[in-house]
Design a protein around this nucleic acid. Sequence first.
DNA 1: TTGAAAGCGATACCAA
DNA 2: TTGGTATCGCTTTCAA
Lengths: 352, 352
Amino acid sequence: MTNDPGGAVPTISDVARAAGVSPSTVSYVLSGRRPISAQTRARVQAAIAELGFHPHAGARALASSRTNVLALVVPLRVDVNVPVIMQFVTAVVTAARAHNHDVLLLTKDEGTAGLERVAHSTMVDALIVMDVERDDLRLPALRGLRQPSVLIGLPDGAPGITCVDLDFAGAGAQALRHLHGHGHRQVALVGPSPAVYQRGTGYAGRFLSGFTEVSAELSLRTVAHPCEPSAAGVRDCLARIDADLPGATALVVHNEEALLPLLADLRADGRRVPQDLSVVAVCPRDVAVGMPVRLTSVDIPAHEVGTMAVEAAMGLLDGRSVAETTLLPPTLVERDSCGRPGAGSEISSSHC
Amino acid sequence: MTNDPGGAVPTISDVARAAGVSPSTVSYVLSGRRPISAQTRARVQAAIAELGFHPHAGARALASSRTNVLALVVPLRVDVNVPVIMQFVTAVVTAARAHNHDVLLLTKDEGTAGLERVAHSTMVDALIVMDVERDDLRLPALRGLRQPSVLIGLPDGAPGITCVDLDFAGAGAQALRHLHGHGHRQVALVGPSPAVYQRGTGYAGRFLSGFTEVSAELSLRTVAHPCEPSAAGVRDCLARIDADLPGATALVVHNEEALLPLLADLRADGRRVPQDLSVVAVCPRDVAVGMPVRLTSVDIPAHEVGTMAVEAAMGLLDGRSVAETTLLPPTLVERDSCGRPGAGSEISSSHC
DNA sequence: TTGAAAGCGATACCAA
DNA sequence: TTGGTATCGCTTTCAA
């Protein structure tokens, strides 16, 4: 690596001259878009290394109409689960890099204008949009862009845009089925914060509907309450559950941030998990594992979803056909927070 | 806004033709780099709106050697405080947008190669690097780039690169002085996880040294222990403190993730905050406020730091002179977690 | 297997 | 106050 600080930045022509070939040959060595003899390739590559040549991204974008950049729109609200968002972001950046793309970060609060700005100015090849609401105002704008987009989430109706998400209805169903299989007949759902429902974020409702359907199908007694993710909010929510369904033997918690205060609250109340109350959480693995009690959980596969979103975007860019909607099947992992109702302290973990 | 989907994307020449002026005039209307008569300007702007023209970012970058993009390098480790990172990111993106820049997201684990890739290919005008270690391997690489960079953090020695950070030594001093002012003479520091110290992240040591200096200066009895941010880690840490400094009447907690388990642990032990034990936290405001007890805290001003980092980068790009090191003074905010030692339940919040 | 040269779409210098 | 145009650095078609 011969760095030449102070010297001018080498261009493709400099490389061509040094290698004794034409600029186009250098370009083709770089892109592999046409066969090059081994010797020529070697000479060019030597010259590239020698000069420390790096193609100019802007020039490339101009000539090829490809930026190798993906836009990622993230929510920066505080009531949204920050660690989960970070997992999506990590997954997207990592997957994008694996496809030789970089990631331009947009915030949701720039709204439609932000999307159009980066798309119209050709800063990106495709867009990935997180935190999509059921009737998201940005959808029409996205449809109008020349670049393809991929949603993380599932809006109402046929969005006409590629969507990737966890099958939250399936997740709700699976959580409840699991508890039913362990003998529970009265189960309460601790949902996301009211703000999430009000915002019209789809996953909350989809999870609830899966939960509700299974409840009906299996003739269970269930209640569902949203929950503010704070010590006070959790206390409220538990009180309401005790009032509405005093015989509840299990909780499904679809609210990552409420988990810690909730477990603390139960403990302070002398209600042991899982001896007195079973808990199934819906959250990323590492959150479930990091709790005071290792929680049986339905995984939120942020990494997979993020990766699939990028794969879908790449597929669209390459002209491959891509399923409009991809719902990842839920995965429930047994850990230590779920026993049989009324098992008291004599819980046999082999049964759960 | 007359959208013309399906029609070709308009270029600056199309606008020029429509407005009856030359392309350069359109460019100057856009950039404001030379005086334009009001009528011409109006005609051009009308044409721009009419055609829905947006300058091509790549073409612009090529012609002007300015991308209007900032690289932001974020750590995606799990042991790092995710919400705090998100606050930095938010601040940087917001500030960058205020200066008409976008943000390209790089992960720390791409290391030196990632920095050089985006810099050499001229994808960005400047770089902002988070989570800088005391003797960070990336510093030499950053110094070799044509683009300026700004560090969030403070490496050892004279880095030769602009740095922005909270004055952690001052923060440690302030936390301890505050407790001393309220009568505490035996104070324990609950530090970040051992991993943070081992990684050589500077802020942990700087905080500790400020704490230690004040301890000596005021002849206090203090101990300091790192703390794994988990239920078990917190238990361990508290046990060690009880062993080493049984008379401790106050805790300084420089470990955001340990706060919740720590408070739960104290509560379970029947030790009330602040009646039996005072606590000063070091964390962002909203974290302090969101705890079961509203914590007196030294703020981690992620927003200010992120904003200042962007301002510094803009200053460097504009050729303004920028201080090599900017340490933001700490701010302690009184809330409800700090009383006089031995005050028991008769705490008078007016005194604290 | 390689080369020549015409763009890509802006900016900014040199003229008028 | 405005216009003409060379230039930025690369890709890709057309030719050989």
